[in-house]
Design a protein around this nucleic acid. Structure first.
Lengths: 230, 230
DNA sequence: TTCCTTTCGTTGTAATTGCAACATAATTAT
DNA sequence: ATAATTATGTTGCAATTACAACGAAAGGAA
C-alpha cells in the first residue's frame, strides 16, 4: 500500500546531499537553501515498494533521491516487470518527462527501500522567479547541461551500437576516443566486461575480436590502454 | 577554401522559416523578430563544402539552417569521413555542445550545398535578457523540450537495440508501443525497412522473425498494424 | 486492365555471435 | 610469499544473423 508523508524536513541536511549533485553544481549551501525555498521544493517519504511515479501518467515535478534508493521499472504486456535503472542518493529522475505534460511516462518509479524524495516543480525551475534571483539561471544552466551531457553520451553510444559487427562497434568507439583525446594512444574508462556491456556484445567475443585486430596490426592494447595503428 | 559573408539579412524571410521549427514553437512572427534582435542573432552564408563547425573545437552558438542543407560528418583516424546526419531548412544543430565549453565537438558540420545559417549564442538564450522579455522563457522552454524529447527517443531506442536477439528487440519495441497506446492493438509509424533500420537489424531477418512470432501465436500483424497476444 | 514500382516474405548459405567452459594473467588479500 | 579473487584470453559449438537472390503481394500510374 502506498503511504505518503509530507512534512517540513530539515532542509539543511538535504542541502549537504544536493551540493554534490549536477543540478546544484556551482551553488553554495546557503544559496541552495534559498533556491529550495524559492522553488517551494517538497519532500515525501516512501516505504519499500511504494509507487513514486506510475507508468502511463504524466508528471510535472522532477525527483531527487535524498534518502534510500529507487528503481525505475518497465512492465510488459504480460505484467512482467523489468528493472531498467537503480537510482541512489543524489540521483535525479523524471526530468525528461516533467517538462511537458504530453510526455507519458513509459516506466514506473518504485521505492526499492525506505526512501525520501525531494520534488521540485519543473515549471518553477524553468520560469524566472518573481524575485528574479541571480542563481535561478545557474540552476537552469545546470539542468540544460544535464540534458546536453546525456544527449551527447546517448548519441555517441548509439552510433557505435548500431554498427553491425563487433569489429565495427569497437573501432567506432576507439575512433571516437582517439578523436576526443586528440591522439592515437589513449586510455578508456572501461575494463573488458564494461566495454562489452557498453557495446552490447559478449565479453569473450569482444576479447576474441580484439585479439584478431591486434594480430592484424590494426590496433594495439594493453589492459585499458589502446593505440590505433595506420 | 572557407568563405564567410556576414551581412544584415532580411529577418522577415527567416522568420517564416523559424516559426515552423520546434525552437520557435508557440511564438508568433513579430515576437520572433524581436527575440532575434534581443539575442543578436546573426546569419552567415557558406558555399558547398565550407566547414561550419570543425571537429575538435568548441562552440558557443547553436545553428539553424535557413537556406540549403548541411552534413554532420565524422572523420576516423585514417581520414575517412562518414556522413552521420543530413540537415535541411529548419533543422537545429550544435545545441548539445554550445551549452558547455568543455564539450568538444566529435563531428564536423559541413555545407552540403550553398547555404545560410542563423547563429544564436547559447548564453544569450539561457540568461534572462536585460529587458526581461516574457517570451524569452518560452524560447527557453522550447529548447529544453527539444532536449527532453530527443532524450526520451534515444533512451527508449537504446533499450530496444541493446537486446541480444531480433526477437527480443522487436518485442521490446512492440511492448513499448503497446504501453504508449494503452492497448494491445496499435499501429506503428514504420514500414518493415524503417523498423529494421530503427532496430539496427536486417530487414529480411526481421521479416522472418516476425513470421515465426505470428506462427507461434505471440503476435499478430498486418502491414504496420500489430496485436500483442496473451 | 496492364505495366511498373515498391514492399514484404521466404529460403539457403556463409559469417558472426553468444555461450559455456576452461586456461592464463593480473590483482588483492592474508 | 602464498592463496584467493578477479580480469582477460582462447576455443568449440550451437544458435542467430546478414546477405543475396528470388517471388509474391500490394499499390500507383498509364
Amino acid at each position: 500500500m502506498l503511504q505518503l508523508q509530507r512534512k517540513e524536513d530539515n532542509m539543511q541536511e538535504i542541502t549537504q546531499i544536493l551540493n554534490k549533485t549536477k543540478l546544484f553544481n556551482n551553488i553554495n549551501d546557503q544559496v541552495i537553501l534559498s533556491i529550495l525555498k524559492c522553488l517551494n521544493a517538497q519532500t515525501k517519504s516512501y516505504n519499500k515498494n511504494d509507487i513514486i511515479f506510475q507508468a502511463g501518467s504524466t508528471i510535472n515535478e522532477i525527483g531527487i533521491v535524498v534518502q534510500g534508493s529507487i528503481n525505475v521499472i518497465r512492465e510488459d504486456f504480460n505484467g512482467n516487470s523489468n528493472i531498467i535503472a537503480h537510482l541512489e542518493i543524489g540521483d535525479i529522475f523524471g526530468e525528461s518527462f516533467a517538462i511537458n505534460k504530453n510526455n507519458i511516462l513509459p516506466v514506473s518509479v518504485v521505492a526499492s527501500s525506505k526512501c525520501k524524495i525531494l520534488f521540485i516543480e519543473f515549471d518553477k525551475i524553468i520560469s524566472p522567479c518573481i524575485s528574479n534571483c541571480q542563481f535561478h539561471s545557474i540552476l537552469m544552466r545546470n539542468l540544460v547541461n544535464i540534458f546536453a551531457q546525456r544527449n551527447i553520451l546517448l548519441t555517441s553510444k548509439m552510433e557505435h551500437i548500431t554498427k553491425k559487427s563487433i569489429k565495427e562497434k569497437l573501432l567506432s568507439y576507439l575512433n571516437e576516443q582517439s578523436l576526443l583525446h586528440k591522439s592515437d594512444t589513449f586510455s578508456i574508462p572501461f575494463n573488458r566486461q564494461e566495454l562489452a556491456d557498453y557495446l552490447a556484445v559478449d565479453r569473450s567475443a569482444l576479447s576474441s575480436t580484439m585479439s584478431k585486430l591486434k594480430e592484424n596490426g590494426i590496433i594495439d592494447y594493453y589492459k585499458n590502454s589502446f593505440k590505433l595503428k595506420r
